[in-house]
Design a protein around this nucleic acid. Structure first.
Lengths: 135, 135
DNA sequence: CTCGCTGCAAACCATTTGCACGTGG
DNA sequence: CCACGTGCAAATGGTTTGCAGCGAG
């Protein structure tokens, strides 16, 4: 019944440990780069595969960035969302508030459990408002 | 003063027209496929470039799917969000409700205008709940 | 010992870019 | 006419896969 046993390895531990020190989403390549920087002789492939396994097991949350990269973050982190400006790219961290509750509520209504969500807000900040919008 | 003029072309019109008939996000490749299916002799590159231009102009909303594909949807569409099951992939359409208001509110607080948002909720539906979760 | 984990490099696939011709204005 | 739009094909770049060796149990 033990079924899928996850073998304890040096690499896997290194990734898990690194994730513990990070609160925000990081790309697989950044994680790999950081690991190498720490002297962990780990391969990019292993980072990708381990991250996928962890994500599948619900140990980490993963999502796709605007540039198509997959980013990961440890679960149960006190997360926030981003308000991004289309003009200058400025990203403001915002708290979920009502949205957090709404998401959890909607999920529950549909019988969903183990819920996570992703919210991204895009707009134009006061600094980038076109002064003479042509149309 | 006219500055960036968007030239009217057959291809661009075809893409714009197609987007009018779609309420949900579609990938550039799907759009291209549909266009070819309609007999429009349009290239994939053109679809990509036109979509990018339209997105930059705010004519369409674009975001990245879970598989890394860019998807586009015409603006001002009466949109809904998705509640996706990690187990079977079932996607339930849900209305924004409180979240819509929250997003708009947060954006306004930070002086943002022309706001759009993306909300994705992931979880495990009742059908996919592990019967004997080992943990 | 056996099987999963690891890692290199090639495979993949969506997207982007270079270059030259056609066309809108 | 002149610059932008178009499109083919190659380039790019992040992610995945094949295959052979090592280490955990």
């Amino acid at each position: 019944m033990t079924g899928v046993a996850v073998r304890s390895t040096k690499q896997r531990a290194a990734i898990a440990a690194l994730l513990e020190n990070v609160d925000e989403f990081r790309s697989a390549q950044e994680l790999h780069d950081e690991l190498r920087r720490r002297g962990e002789g780990i391969g990019l492939t292993t980072v990708y595969r381990t991250l996928q396994t962890m994500a599948a097991s619900g140990l980490v949350d993963s999502l796709r960035t605007d540039t198509g990269e997959s980013v990961y973050r440890r679960c149960s982190a006190h997360h926030h969302h981003h308000l991004v400006c289309r003009g200058c790219g400025t990203a403001v961290e915002v708290q979920g508030g009502a949205a957090e509750k709404w998401a959890a509520d909607v999920a529950r209504e549909h019988g969903f459990t183990d819920v996570t969500h992703t919210i991204e807000i895009f707009g134009v900040c006061g600094d980038c408002v076109p002064a003479d919008s042509a149309g």
